[in-house]
Each structure stands twice: as structure tokens, then as C-alpha cells.
Design a protein around this nucleic acid. Structure first.
Lengths: 201, 201
DNA sequence: GTCTATATGCTGATAGAC
DNA sequence: GTCTATCAGCATATAGAC
């Protein structure tokens, strides 16, 4: 595979992410993607196997970025409350670095398919994605519980608190698109206050 | 229009909302809806004019419910901070009462169309919806600003704080679906603490 | 690697029998 | 008010010329 074709693939993924973000996977056609890239839809298939493969190539890497990130934080020997603050900062950074891919995370995973005959190693894309998402959520909840146990956070309803924090972070891409000039450090400080401030002891 | 047909319409709207929630408007076919209701797709058109009309009949009423609700709160002569608490309680109640319709609010409005020739009074469905949403958001921000001016909240970054609060409330339907047995009063108390606690003076 | 042409199936919606 | 039959258009994807 040449460098040129790798670049072409990257361009197709980037344009697809933008289109999926705007209209969703189902409402975006292969022709829409081909138009955005500047070729006929048939030519796209010299670079990708299927529309489904594009979705997999966008969602699974971003899910792995999240998991790698939270794993690294968790391996540190910080107090749990500082781990939570670092996780929030990491999610902000990941969102700013990959806004289009991140935008697919809340809702587009439902279009991942398990039974794709073409891709031998992608037969369980849906299952794999769910597993990564659940791993992230469960580790987040575990660290949150530790922050309570260590006396940094009040004994709140954990599931409500974690849902509240994560649903804001998952939607950050949409707020950030309208406020791209904000200083990242300010965004971090404000969000940490918004999301954790009411729960501190 | 008979009572029976009104009930049939309500059933079609309810089943459509469930399907739109699960897969989105674009990925839900008229045949899917007909199957769920228990008739052939052609028969559906004795009850509805178009698929687009179903989306309008789901999204515009729920948007009006939100606006009516926040207007009523705003007309009271409460301190702004208490208005915010009441708005949160109202959003929780609206979500619990209309989970499927509420689930369409974050993302499905992009499929509303402005140029539907069939429906004389619905030519601007998309514009109308955006207007209702913007009205709600701007009034929410105004009340939030008042709560700061009245000394109840810290002088935070208003847009970040309002985005954070509203994105959690808009996603509540999805958390609630997995925790339907929770006591509503507990949910209200926890969410008010999560969403406003860190911002109080 | 891009194109034209095409296969096959699904889409929203309509016509007309009953 | 429900059905069968059908339409025109668009979907994903492939074949094969260049």
C-alpha cells in the first residue's frame, strides 16, 4: 500500500466522519462521500471495502484512544480525585484533537454490524465497540467510587453522578464547534468545577 | 375524524417514536413503522400524510412542552436560583412522561424539512423547531445570569455551565431507560446537586 | 485508479380492488 | 380502512473498459 493511497484513505475517513457527524451514518450515502472526496462512488471502492468498514475505521480507533487514556491515568498512583480530574482533561483533549470522530461516539455505534462477511477480523465490530465502551464506563465508576472511599467526594448516587459527568463530556464536541477559540486551560478548569464541584466534600 | 382513527394515529406516533429512538429517523422505514403497528405500509397513509409528518408531529409538540414549561417557571417571582431548580425538576418530569419523544430532541431535528409541499402549515418545521430550541436556551441562559447577579451562583463561564447542565438533561432519557425504578424525588435531588452544586456561592 | 454501466434490493408514496 | 400491485428513485456494491 503506497503512501499516496494511505493519504487517500485518510481523506476518505476524514470526509466520512464530517458527513456522518452532520447527518448520521444511515443518511449519508456512498455517493455523498465520493462527492466530498471528489470522485465517483465506484472509485471509492478502490480505497475502502464498504461503507460499514469506514464506520468501523472511525469508531473502533477512537474507542481505543479513550480506553488507553483512562488506563494510563489509572496506572498512576494519584489520589482518585486527581485521576478523575485528569480523565476530564484527557476527554477534553481527545475531543479537541478528534472532534468529528468523537461526535460519532454517542449515537452512531448502533450502526456497527457484527456479521460483515468481507472483513475476517471485523466480524464482531459491534461487540468489540460495546466492550470498549463498557470497560471505560466501569473503570470510570470504579475510580469515582475510590474518590468517595478516600473522602474526597460526598457519598452521592454514583450512577447518576457518572452519567451526568460522562454525558456532558460526550457532548462537548458540539459546544466546542461553536467556541473553538476558547483557551483549553479555561475549558478544563470550568468543566472540572461544573462536573465535580458539587460533589466534593 | 373519529376517536378510533385518533387512537390509531397516536399508536403510529408512539411506535414511530420508539423506532426513531432506536435507529434514527433516516434508518427507520415506513415499512418498519407499518410492521410495528401491524398493517401494510400502504395502509399507513390512511392515517398519516408522510414519514416527515410523523417526525414533525413528534418533535414540535415536545419542543412546545419545554418552552411552555420554562415560560411558566419564568413568570413566577422566585429567586432565579429557585427557577433553575424548578427547570431541572420540570425537565426530569417531561423526560419521564415522554421518554421516546424526548430522545429525538438531541439529534433527530436535523431531519426536519422546510419545503414540504403537502402540509401547508408545516412549511417551516425545521425553522420553527430551531426557533423554539433557541428560545428555550436563551431564556435558560438569561435566568442563569440572573442567578449570578442575585449572588446565588459564582461568576462562572455561563455558556460552559449552561451547556453542561442542558447536555446532561437532554441525555437523561437514556440513563432513565436503564433505571426506571428510581424514585423521582431522589433523581431530582441528585441531579440538582450534580448540576448546580459546584456553581453555588 | 478512475470511469461508465449495471445488478439487485429497498425507499417513500400512489392507484385502485375489495 | 386494509389490501395487492406498482412506480420512480436511490441505496450499496460490482464488472470491466481505459
Amino acid at each position: 500500500m503506497t503512501l499516496k493511497s494511505k493519504n487517500r484513505q485518510r481523506e476518505i475517513l476524514a470526509k466520512s466522519a464530517r458527513l456522518f457527524r452532520k447527518k448520521g451514518y444511515a443518511a449519508t450515502s456512498i455517493r455523498d462521500i465520493a462527492d466530498a472526496v471528489g470522485m465517483k462512488s465506484a472509485s471509492l471502492y478502490n480505497h475502502i471495502k464498504s461503507k460499514q468498514e469506514i464506520l468501523r475505521a472511525l469508531l473502533l480507533p477512537i474507542a481505543k484512544i479513550y480506553v488507553t487514556s483512562i488506563n494510563q491515568v489509572n496506572e498512576n498512583s494519584l489520589p482518585a480525585i486527581e485521576k478523575l480530574e485528569q480523565i476530564i482533561r484527557d476527554q477534553i483533549r481527545i475531543t479537541i484533537e478528534n472532534p468529528d470522530a468523537v461526535s460519532l461516539v454517542p449515537d452512531q455505534w448502533v450502526f456497527l454490524e457484527n456479521d460483515d462477511k468481507d472483513a475476517e477480523d471485523a466480524k464482531t465490530a459491534y461487540n468489540d465497540y460495546i466492550e470498549l465502551r463498557n470497560y471505560y464506563e466501569q473503570l470510570f465508576i470504579k475510580i469515582f467510587q475510590e474518590a468517595i472511599d478516600e473522602g474526597a467526594l460526598k457519598s452521592v448516587h454514583i450512577e447518576i453522578a457518572c452519567f451526568s459527568i460522562l454525558s456532558t463530556l460526550r457532548r462537548l464536541y458540539s459546544w466546542y464547534a461553536r467556541h473553538r477559540t476558547i483557551d483549553q486551560a479555561v475549558l478544563e478548569k470550568e468543566l472540572i468545577m461544573n462536573l465535580l464541584g458539587g460533589l466534593r466534600k
